[in-house]
Design a protein around this nucleic acid. Structure first.
Lengths: 209, 209, 209, 209
DNA sequence: ATCTAATCGAGACGGTACGTCGAGTCTTCCC
DNA sequence: GGGAAGACTCGACGTACCGTCTCGATTAGAT
């Protein structure tokens, strides 16, 4: 009897396999509609029609409308925010703030705002947004900061969660309230502010740093 | 026909005068329901029933459901955030962050989140929110920071607008995304973070400050 | 103070009154569609559209699709089957069989068949059909036969329920199975058969009566 | 190459042969489910699951859900209604009504009702039902009545077709409308009613026969 | 011993109707 | 004319079933 290579394994389950193309078309349609009519006005019927699928297929793979839109959003925004290995604290903070400011200023920023807004009115959106976007992104960022700590490039006593809030909070504020523009210059000077603090340094003159 | 004294400014229009008590009961009912069942599950029928009024009355005075809650917000949240004269930078930042964290954690925080969410889909809400809430509040805060600068208690080169974002952004982030709790301790340690910055101080050991 | 005529009474309840015209339009649309596409293919959306109303209104007044169609059917067929006061047994049986045969042969007969067919597949249809059509009709017919008994024009020992089955069963059989035509002649000779029975009469020759 | 005896009529086609056991299991499952949940609530998925087959197999051999149940009906109901040679008119009518009442009251009755219902919306079902069930059964019954006429045990002038309607119509009525129970007693008294007629006999008192 | 072809199980798919729910409007009577 | 009551239109929701399809696995006769 021959050797059965069970290594590569993952035997296909019986039955017709899931149509990945349809899955993709649904996400694309959701994303298009999200941009065109806004979160609240996207309907599942419209997604089904636009994607050439059916509501049944949508509801087979996503528990509700919100999940589809969040999924589409995550799939679309993730590649725009690559998480790189940190070299120094200054570099890491500056680069990521600049990156995120670019997203906030653009089309994807409006999507993010729409999703966060929708989360205020719908526990299902909130749950999906937290578990599919916020939590995984923060987990990765946390690891980066932990590496910096491990290398002695960042004070041990800082609460990383709070550092993340201090980094991303101001840009989310700008995103949702729109009282100013998230330019690259804004991102850079925000990074400087966070890195060095508000208070005058020891031995500094009041006006210098 | 008698002389109608038009001196008293606006002549009373004919017909039954508006029932101000009903208006108030509607606002109260909206706030109660918001706490009990959350924004999404507040229905206009429920507000009408709770307030002992009718949907017709609600829609006569507010254009839609969101407007009712926004109105309630504006009427109720303003007095909770007094702006005091600054003594030191540390004190000012710490006190106001604690104050705002308390609001974010409470009922009024949910209202604020709802208003910001509504602003994402409605330019009128956005404009009203900016002009009636954000701008006046920030103007007052700006004056306070300017006083600190004038007294040499704050570095001259800091952009006050950005300082305000750095202060209030993280708490708004927490308010909208709810990935953590805005406790008083959180507010205080956030204040410390902002005041002293992320980067290790000159001559500091990596782990200390 | 004037006399308040409380006699005519039935004070109108508060609120907007039910739109009887819409009710009627719904019934008409249901009836039209029933004829056009058959019981199973009538949809509530179609009824709503055809009648210029909405599904919500339909479901406010009828518990489900079947009830609408039964209601429409009853409203439409009842006037075609007037129940008259009996003069003699022979007359009553003959007249009503002729009358019902005419319905069975016509458009309304197809409706009746569709409703009975639908009742086989749906307990809700069955219940609605029994309570809105069969039971009231049989109650009225029963009264007529009871009058005949009271006047000595019909044997006391006959079970009226069974007499009704014997009268209306054969025509329903013809309606559903369509192995023959319910002509007036058929109705008359059926009446004779029922009145005089199959068995040869005492003293009759086998072939005569 | 060997000689293939084509005498045995149909040559076996290539490929896997039809699984007759599966066919039988599908029919059985359909009958079981019909009893358990009623016609409307039998789903093809349920039949497939219960029978350990798949929907594909069902739809390979039957055009739709109704056809499965009709098929099961034809296979299972025929042997339950033996047609015996008549001795007297009274005996023949009474025995066959009792026999048919038993069928109407039972599981096979529900099947018959379902088939008749399906025939209302499907000319093919109607044709199949008439040619495979109604016509052959009636032909046999007609012969029996003709024998009775030939022996002088039944009036010559009766229309045998109508006699069959009068016999089987009421029980079909009960079968489809279910406003009463087809008990043996019901069958017997129906036979008496048909044999002797409704009208009081010559010289009878009104209340007697 | 393969090769070919049809059947089988499983289950995903497009489609369509269901019955429900909320938003916002309209209609009536009462004050 | 304003207010309570409540019926109305509109349109989306999420569910269920139908009948079709696409897989891999199975089962034979044909080669």
């Amino acid at each position: 009897m021959e050797h059965q290579p069970e290594s590569e394994a993952q035997v296909r389950p019986p039955g017709r396999p899931r149509d990945e193309a349809a899955r993709e078309r649904i996400r694309d349609a959701a994303l298009q509609l999200l941009e065109e009519v806004g979160f609240a006005n996207v309907t599942c019927d419209a997604i089904a029609q636009r994607s050439g699928t059916s509501k049944a297929t949508i509801y087979r793979w996503w528990p509700n409308k919100a999940a589809v839109l969040i999924d589409a959003f995550v799939e679309s925004v993730t590649p725009e925010l690559p998480l790189r290995d940190p070299t120094t604290l200054e570099d890491y903070v500056t680069v990521h703030l600049r990156q995120f400011a670019r997203v906030v200023a653009g089309r994807k920023g409006r999507l993010l705002a729409a999703v966060i807004a929708a989360a205020q009115n719908d526990p299902e959106v909130e749950a999906a947004f937290l578990s599919h976007w916020i939590k995984p992104r923060r987990a990765l960022s946390r690891q980066a900061f932990q590496k910096l700590k491990d290398r002695g490039l960042m004070p041990e006593n800082l609460d990383i969660e709070q550092v993340l809030d201090a980094m991303y909070g101001p840009l989310h504020f700008l995103l949702m309230v729109r009282h100013g523009k998230p330019t690259p210059a804004y991102a850079e000077s925000l990074a400087a502010l966070l890195l060095h603090g508000l208070a005058p340094r020891h031995g500094d003159a009041a006006g210098g740093r």
